[in-house]
C-alpha cells in the first residue's frame, strides 16, 4: 500500500488550549479511512491543519511524499487535496451548474486561465456528476435555494469535479434524510472505486462509518486514541470509555 497522506506528530494549540497533540495518521492510496471521536476531540482542527487553514505547531504533513504543512490553502487544493466543510459551503447565488463548472480544474495558469472559455467537456462532466449525486433536475436552481442535504450533495459533487486525489469529508451524511443515507454511502464507495479518489471521512453516524470505512482512527481530547479495522476500534475499551465519558 502506497501511503498518500502521512501525518507525523502533528500538534496544534489555540492560545494554550491543545486541540491536537502529536497526531500520527496515514492514509493509503485508494483507501477509505474513517476518523471518529466525540464532539470537540479535534477532528475538524486536524482537517483544517491538513488543508492549510492554519499552520501547525509541530510535526509534519506529507502528501504523495512531499511536505505540505507550509503551503497555503489554494496550493494544497491544487496538489489534489479537497476538503468539504462541516457547515456546508456552496456558492449560494450561483446555479448548481455554475457551482460545478467553476470547480473544474484548469490546466492554464495566469491570464490564459482567467480568460479561458468554459470548456464543453467541463459542462458535460458537471452534468454527469450532478446526475451521479441525484441533482440533475435541479441543475439550474440557485444553490442557496437547495435543502440542506441537497447542498451537501452538491458540495460533494463539486469536490469530485475538481478531480481530487484525496477527499477530506467532514460529516458527509449530517443533515441528510435517513432514507437517503444508504444512497450516499453507495456514492462514496463508487467515487472511491470508479474515480480513484482516496477518502478520509469524519463521521458521527456509527452505522455509516462502520459500514463505509476500511480502517478507522478514533480521537479523544486532541489525541489519537486508537486505530485499526472498524471491528477492532469498536471493541476497544478506551474508545467505549471516551464515548461514554466524553459525551
Amino acid at each position: 500500500m502506497n501511503p498518500l497522506l502521512e501525518l507525523d506528530g502533528v500538534s496544534k494549540s489555540f492560545g494554550g488550549v491543545r486541540a491536537n497533540t502529536a497526531i500520527d495518521l496515514a492514509v493509503g492510496e485508494g483507501e477509505i479511512v474513517g476518523l471518529i471521536g466525540p464532539n470537540g476531540s479535534g477532528k475538524t482542527t486536524l482537517f483544517n491543519s491538513i488543508a492549510g487553514h492554519h499552520p501547525i505547531d509541530a510535526g509534519s504533513i506529507r502528501f504523495a511524499g512531499q511536505e505540505i504543512s507550509r503551503l497555503r490553502v489554494p496550493q494544497i487544493a491544487r496538489r489534489g487535496i479537497i476538503r468539504t466543510f462541516q457547515q456546508t459551503r456552496v456558492y449560494r447565488r450561483m446555479t448548481c451548474m455554475q457551482n460545478m463548472v467553476v470547480s473544474a480544474p484548469v490546466a492554464a495558469q495566469g491570464i490564459a486561465g482567467m480568460l479561458g472559455r468554459i470548456a464543453r467537456e467541463d459542462g458535460e462532466r458537471a452534468q454527469a456528476l450532478l446526475d451521479f449525486v441525484g441533482l440533475a433536475a435541479l441543475r439550474h436552481s440557485q444553490a442557496g435555494d437547495l435543502s440542506f442535504g441537497q447542498q451537501r450533495l452538491l458540495e460533494f459533487a463539486m469536490a469530485l469535479m475538481r478531480r481530487p486525489r484525496l477527499l477530506l469529508l467532514d460529516e458527509p451524511t449530517a443533515g441528510i434524510n435517513p432514507t437517503l443515507i444508504n444512497g450516499v454511502i453507495d456514492r462514496l464507495r463508487r467515487a472511491n472505486a470508479e474515480l480513484q479518489v482516496t477518502l478520509l471521512v469524519i463521521e458521527h453516524n456509527m452505522r455509516v462509518i462502520m459500514n463505509l470505512a476500511q480502517r478507522l482512527y478514533c480521537m479523544s481530547h486532541g489525541e489519537m486514541l486508537a486505530a485499526g479495522t472498524p471491528g477492532e476500534v469498536r471493541n476497544d475499551p478506551r474508545v467505549l470509555a471516551a464515548y461514554l465519558g466524553g459525551s
Binding site: P74, A77, I82, V90, Y91, V102, S103, A159
Partner: peptide, 8 residues
Amino acid sequence: DKAEAMGL
C-alpha cells in the same frame, strides 16, 4: 474561503 479551498 470556499473558493480558496477549491484551489482558485
